[in-house]
Each structure stands twice: as C-alpha cells, then as structure tokens.
C-alpha cells in the first residue's frame, strides 16, 4: 500500500549550520493517528513542517501519496497544502477580523471546489460537528481558547484533506480542552478514517494515538504502535 506521506533520508540543516533533523525515514499510512513526541528542541515541529511541505529538506525527500515533492516549485507545494493538507498550530492563528464561519470558509473559497452556498453549508456542518454551531458568527476574540482551537480544526478540515498536521495543538489549552482536542482527532481517525499527525510533548495525550514516534536530537529513537 502506498504510504500517505513518507520521509526518505530527510535532513534539515539551517544556513547557519544547525541541524534540526537528520536522516529521518518515516512512512505514514492512510487512517493512522500518529503522535510525534520528544523533548524541546528535538526537532518535532521541524519534522512536521517538512512533512507538511512548509519547509524543504536539505537532503532527502518527502513523498505525498507517492509523489516526490522535491521537484515541485513553491506554487505547486502551496496547491498541495491547500487541497491535501490541513494544519492546526499551537496558536489558533485565526484571522481576527473574520467570524468563525468565515475563517473556515477562507481555504474553501481559495480552492473553489464547492459553490459558495455549498461551501457555506459544509463549513456550518464542520462547525456543528465540533460543537460550534452557535459560535459561527462570532469573532475569534469572542471565543474561548478551546473554542478557537476547535475553529482552527474545522478550518483544517475545510478542504477535506488527506492528512491533518497539528503542531502542539494543546499547548495553550487547559487539561479539559486539551483532552477534548485529542478526542476530536481520535474521532476523526476512527469514524472518518482520516489521517492525523500530532506533535506533542504531553506523553499522556500522545498515548491516545495509535502510533508514537519519539525524537531525540533530531533523530527517531522509537516508533511504537499500539496493540
């Protein structure tokens, strides 16, 4: 089976000579829930940015659905991010001038896969699924931290991505909301067969994922599958 995403011998070195990750081989199959764990500075986020096509490896390559992304230009990578990937960051990164609904609609409008009315209905469905139907017209500043992060998850799901990448999505949340976010990811994997890759330093939350990849000093030191 072709992996959904695969890193082959990926190394990322900054121009000033600092190596963030080195010689990473990792393949993720469709429907997996993977947690990348490790201490601060171990290269977790760097690996996520590389797998999310936000950054380019200095050596090695990343394949998305069997397609080598090394040869693609910036516009082609942007197009893949828009249509095949969904991002959730530690900070919600919602646009403050737009309502929750409009924030979810932004990537949908850019992709243009759905007609405006259908996109609006789909965005409302996603918000309702995450318990935010009543908050659709509210601005981010009118929402709690947990609600903002759920809007960010709805936005990540907007274009029906093949892979959801989350970088410390619970870093700014209390325990209850952090558990809720991981519950949502678990449900997306179980019920919708989606693929989720989460970076977290919280071992308890990581234990909810089906697979845990542990990084130390930019290298994979453990790759455990549950069951």
């Amino acid at each position: 089976m072709t992996p959904l995403i695969e890193a082959r011998g990926v190394t990322r070195t900054l121009p000033e000579g600092v190596t963030l990750v080195h010689d990473i081989d990792l393949s993720i199959q469709p429907g997996e829930f993977v947690a990348i764990t490790g201490p601060s500075g171990s290269g977790k986020s760097s690996l996520l940015y590389l797998l999310g096509l936000l950054d380019r490896p200095s050596q090695g390559t990343v394949l998305l659905e069997g397609r080598d992304t090394a040869e693609l230009d910036a516009a082609a990578l942007a197009s893949l991010r828009l249509s095949r990937l969904g991002f959730v960051f530690q900070f919600h990164f919602l646009l403050p001038e737009f309502s929750a609904l409009d924030n979810v609609l932004i990537p949908m409008r850019r992709l243009g896969r759905l007609a405006p009315a259908a996109a609006r209905a789909e965005a409302m469905r996603l918000l309702a699924e995450l318990g935010l139907a009543d908050a659709a017209q509210k601005l981010p500043e009118q929402l709690s931290g947990g609600m903002r992060q759920r809007v960010a998850i709805a936005r990540a799901l907007a274009n029906d991505p093949a892979l959801i990448l989350a970088d410390e999505p619970t870093g700014n949340l209390d325990t209850r909301n952090a558990a809720l976010v991981f519950d949502i990811f678990g449900r997306l994997v179980r019920e919708q067969k989606r693929t989720v890759l989460v970076v977290t330093h919280d071992a308890e939350l990581a234990a909810r994922a089906g697979r845990r990849v542990h990084l130390v000093d930019g290298a994979i030191v453990a790759d455990d599958r549950q069951g």
């Binding site: 999310g52 936000l54 910036a74 516009a75 942007a78 197009s79 893949l80 991010r81 828009l82 249509s83 990937l85 991002f87 960051f89 990164f93 646009l95 932004i106 990537p107 850019r110 992709l111 936005r155």
Partner: peptide
C-alpha cells in the same frame, strides 16, 4: 505578518 504566514501555510500562493 502572522496573518500572511497563516494564509501561506494554508496554501495561498505568493501571487495571491
């Protein structure tokens, strides 16, 4: 800056 970064990470090309 932050909004531009998020739009780019969502997949908005440089031209946009």
């Amino acid at each position: 800056t932050r909004d531009i970064a998020i739009l780019k990470s969502l997949g908005f090309p440089e031209g946009d």
